[in-house]
Amino acid sequence: MPTSEEIKLRIEAAIPGAEVAVEDLTGGGDHFRAEVLADAFAGKSRLDQHRMVYDVFGPEVGGPIHALSIKTQTRTP
């Protein structure tokens, strides 16, 4: 069962330069909220930004990670 820290590190590893905050919403290790700030989101739709985060976990989302709530932001110059 993943921890908030693992989720954070995996997102940071997959999306270079990302600043990530992860919260375990239930304390049960299966419902997480990730807030991700990354330059890599620039020019992408919100759907594609969220897909980039979901893609880090592939089929784990809906499996061991029952729910991953996402908020993405791009740095504004």
């Binding site: 919100r46 759907l47 969220h50 897909r51 979901y54 089929p59």
Partner: peptide
């Protein structure tokens, strides 16, 4: 939709998003 979770909202045939995006 190439979107892994439910719920999913479609408007005019296009995916708008899931709970987070709809809420925002």
């Amino acid at each position: 939709s190439n979107w892994p979770t439910i719920p999913q909202l479609f408007v005019n045939g296009e995916l708008v998003g899931g709970c987070d995006i709809v809420t925002e």
